[in-house]
Write a protein that binds this DNA or RNA. Structure first.
Lengths: 170, 170
DNA sequence: TAGCGCATGTAATATGTTACATGATTTC
DNA sequence: GAAATCATGTAACATATTACATGCGCTA
């Protein structure tokens, strides 16, 4: 996960691990935040795997390692972005992709979100079947968690429905 | 996390690791599911720590290890349930507690949920401040993730608001 | 000169998954 | 007799956090 957020930000320029942490704090902390303890090892692994490259520089007398994304990294990032959204993962995972959707052609974005909505609606129907099956025996708080699940998915389908309409009209 | 789900289920009787996995599959898979690879080690640790005890039995010629919750386990479970809900964790974590709220007196449950709603509303105000600050520079998809965050929290506050009213009227 | 911000990194810990290993009983 | 289900467990891996370790430059 953190891997793709890093690749995403490196699409916009050269940054240090410290820069990336700042960017996450200011713009993605709402759904993804990372500590230095995950950013630095992730950067090292990405470089080892050839997705990014680093240059050692001294700026204002300070030693820095600036990272640049490579072609392989760009390709892997786009491949990830274009993958259908797995809505059963947390909503944070969905937002991590949405955050970078401007990198994709408008039609791709629209297709991905419409697919997402369809998948969510399928899941809602499944849940509603389950509900009618276990309604009688289940305890109040237990069944309430099912109702929350259902309503939460309805909220998601609804929100992304409006979102996709908004994207179409832009 | 898995630890408290196990303790929660052991409040209802004696079960094996296999039983617990089944119960999760059928009733909490909506927000929590666990593999045997996490259930069995968790059971061993809980026993080592004295929160649960096991008895080896042979049923239908099959070797089983049935677990019982101890007083320490019960106390620790209730302590966890009574803790204020940390809504910044995933909604799955919230549901994990709600699922077992029948173990708590009605007034405690109501207080916990009302506190949750208050915390969510505070966070919504923070987000709205942030929005007005960065509205101008931010890119469409980037700011959309903020809007989702805000609307998602509003959905949560709303849902739990109705929930607490329903609990009061029962 | 103390403290904060910038900058990188490691070690210990937490928490889980997937795959593997084993073996019994029940069902078709 | 094969396959599914019951039943327990370990090993390798994945992914992250928190705390620690280090050191420079700027500002009060």
């Amino acid at each position: 996960m953190i891997k793709f957020i890093i690749l995403g930000f490196l699409n916009y320029g050269q940054f240090t691990g410290y820069d990336l942490k700042q960017m996450m704090t200011y713009s993605t902390s709402n759904f993804i935040s990372a500590s230095f303890g995950s950013i630095y090892p992730a950067l090292n692994k990405l470089e080892k795997d050839g997705l990014i490259s680093s240059t050692k520089v001294v700026e204002n007398g300070r030693y820095k390692k600036k990272y640049t994304i490579n072609k392989i990294g760009e390709d892997e990032f786009i491949r990830w972005l274009e993958e259908p959204i797995d809505f059963m993962r947390s909503y944070e995972d969905i937002l991590a992709k949405v955050f970078f959707y401007k990198k994709l052609p408008k039609e791709s974005t629209i297709k991905l979100i419409e697919q997402l909505i369809e998948d969510i609606n399928k899941k809602i129907k499944e849940l509603e079947k389950l509900e009618t099956m276990i309604k009688k025996e289940a305890e109040y708080f237990e069944i309430s968690t099912l109702y929350f699940g259902r309503d939460h998915l309805k909220f998601m389908a609804d929100w992304y429905g409006k979102f996709v309409e908004d994207i179409k009209q832009r």
